[in-house]
């Protein structure tokens, strides 16, 4: 593969630059992969595949541009194109079920604010960590993705639009629906714990 254009970098130089610019993203990237696949081995494979692809296309990567968004985009594409099909995820979460339900596109009315549970501070303390994770994991992957990108990784809507190849308007509406479902799941939990309003 000879994609050496313009300035000729030796392989050592290229590798060093690659590592310096892209390896710092490893932690968020692995976390993203894990939240998509819900499996450590799968996340591992997906991240490796992402870096290998990034290496192959590294000459097209403009130095100083958003390396994190670029890698997230590659990873998300790998996940969709190859990984999702062959992914072995029988026991964990039954996506088909949740997806079938949510794909009806209308989770709850626009601006529904159907928040009936009083999420008081004390109840919130108890919901932490594992509960947030299991509520999030129970969401369809598209919903999970926007929440991770926005709330965990702090990407802007514009960056998310690029990562996901969708218009900003779609980012906004998907995020809105994703949050409504997440809210619903967390409230169910809050209720089951007796934090009924």
């Amino acid at each position: 593969m000879s994609e050496q254009t313009g300035k000729q970098l030796s392989k050592e130089e290229k590798d060093a630059r690659f590592e310096a610019e892209l390896l710092p993203v490893l932690d968020p990237l692995y976390n993203f992969a894990y939240r998509l696949t819900l499996d450590e081995d799968d996340a591992n494979d997906l991240v490796q595949e992402t870096y290998l692809k990034a290496y192959r296309f590294f000459d097209y990567f403009e130095q100083g541009t958003n390396a994190k968004a670029w890698l997230f985009r590659i990873l998300k594409n790998s996940f969709i194109n190859e990984f999702r099909k062959k992914s072995k995820q029988p026991a964990k979460v039954d996506y088909s079920e949740v997806e079938g339900y949510y794909n009806s596109d209308d989770v709850e009315g626009e601006g529904g604010v159907a928040t009936t549970t009083d999420m008081r501070t004390e109840s919130v303390q108890d919901l932490i960590g594992d509960e947030v994770a299991s509520a999030l994991n129970a969401l369809p992957v598209d919903f999970r993705t926007v929440i991770i990108l926005c709330d965990l990784e702090g990407f802007t809507y514009e960056e998310m639009a690029k990562i996901l190849d969708i218009p900003i308007g779609t980012v906004r509406s998907r995020l809105h629906r994703a949050r409504n479902s997440l809210k619903e799941k967390l409230e169910k939990y809050a209720k089951s714990m007796g934090y009924n309003s």
Binding site: F18, Q48, L52, V124, L127, G129, L186
Partner: peptide, 29 residues
């Protein structure tokens, strides 16, 4: 709600071997 995710969702720890195997695979590419 946003704070629950940003502040409480635990991050998973990257296996130490991962960075090494990425570097190794890149070097042989």
């Amino acid at each position: 709600l946003k704070g629950l995710v940003s502040g409480h969702l635990k991050r998973v720890i990257v296996p130490e071997s991962l960075a090494l195997s990425i570097k190794a695979r890149i070097q042989e590419t």
